[in-house]
């Protein structure tokens, strides 16, 4: 009886969005009288940080600091339609809608600034700090604060924009299955290293090295949040989680966190995250949806590592000590 080590690898891809259902999201952007910007949506922030990312996307597009943008979302009386937060679609779909709306608002903003500065709008640029400058002559400038005041009280212009992003529905062809499930895919490769106690069947995940390709890390710290949490969830799925431990038998389902198991803070694998960025052709600033796929590759990587360690295949999830012991017993009797 011994503690045995093994390692396993898995590589995966993941579609962004739900093309097979049709996938629209809208956004509205407008400025306040003093040059702050409101993004209005009906998208839902589940904790992944939708509000923050939409603010950064709007800020980048208009050319102001992120803290000048406020996101008002998920009120059906004010926010235009969004399909919902699922299918790794939020950042991609809503982000594209926000970009379109913000561009339209930016154009009005530049037109008003052009009138104030008596130049052509096409000769203006933003400095990202809240000012609009004449290209090549930055001493000639106006603050966005003053532009918004002028638009509201002098020029009678609405610095606002509408955004709509729609991936039309793809209907699978009946006989061949020809379809377009997604316009862009995120990628990952995970190597997991485990120890398996062949006496108890217990698995300890020592390390997971995850490489994720996610299009573009719009906010690297928030990307890291999702990827670290996702990697944890993947390991949790691999080794612990089930509401029906003896499926298809319906008995013995957990009803609280003492029965429904997940790794706690004392059960963490040493986790490494490496991010590659291949911008998607149609994503907001190249982004893809990383939120779901980051929890997938750990499951087969752990399963393959368990085999590498003790030479038995557990093809049924989760890979519990009971299943490992039964497999080891079967192996020994063969």
């Amino acid at each position: 009886m011994a503690i045995r080590r093994g390692r396993g690898v898995a590589a995966i891809n993941y579609p962004t969005g739900m093309n097979l259902g049709g996938d629209p999201t809208q956004a509205l952007v407008h400025s306040t009288p003093t040059g702050n910007f409101m993004v209005t949506l009906s998208s839902v922030d589940l904790g992944q940080g939708m509000k923050q990312i939409m603010a950064q996307i709007c800020a980048e597009t208009i050319g102001v600091p992120t803290d000048r943008v406020v996101v008002d979302t998920a009120d059906t009386d004010t926010g235009p339609h969004c399909m919902g937060t699922f299918a790794s679609r939020g950042t991609h779909r809503a982000g594209n809608a926000v970009i379109q709306a913000a561009r339209e608002a930016r154009q009005v903003m530049l037109e008003v600034a052009a009138e104030e500065l008596e130049v052509n709008a096409s000769d203006l640029e933003t400095d990202g700090q809240g000012n609009i400058l004449v290209k090549g002559a930055p001493q000639k400038s106006i603050s966005i604060f003053d532009v918004a005041l002028s638009a509201h009280f002098k020029r009678g212009r609405s610095i606002s924009g509408r955004g709509m992003f729609l991936i039309p529905r793809s209907y699978p062809e009946k006989e061949t299955g020809a379809m377009k499930p997604s316009t862009c895919y995120a990628h990952a490769c995970t190597v997991a290293e485990v120890e398996v106690d062949d006496e108890t069947g217990e698995v300890t995940v020592l390390t997971v090295k995850n490489v994720f390709e996610i299009g573009r890390a719009l906010n690297p710290k928030m990307v890291e949040q999702q990827l670290v949490g996702g990697s944890w969830m993947g390991i949790s799925h691999a080794l612990y989680e089930t509401t029906e431990p003896y499926y298809p038998n319906r008995d013995h389902g957990g009803t609280d966190f003492n029965q429904y198991l997940m790794p706690g803070p004392g059960d963490l694998a040493q986790t490494e995250i490496i991010v590659l960025e291949r911008p998607s052709a149609d994503g907001p600033y190249g982004a893809k949806g990383p939120g779901e796929m980051c929890a997938n590759p750990q499951i087969p990587a752990v399963a393959n590592a368990v085999f590498d360690a003790v030479g038995v295949r557990i093809d049924t999830l989760p890979i519990t000590p009971e299943r490992i012991l039964r497999a080891l017993k079967a192996q020994a009797s063969n």
């Binding site: 949490g229 990697s231 966190f257 706690g264 803070p265 004392g266 963490l268 986790t271």
Partner: peptide
């Protein structure tokens, strides 16, 4: 720290940032 947090469930973060 791990011991102190072991009665608290988090489903998003994977605990490491909290630790």
């Amino acid at each position: 720290v791990v011991e102190a947090l072991s009665g608290n469930i988090c489903r998003c973060t994977g605990y490491e940032p909290i630790i």
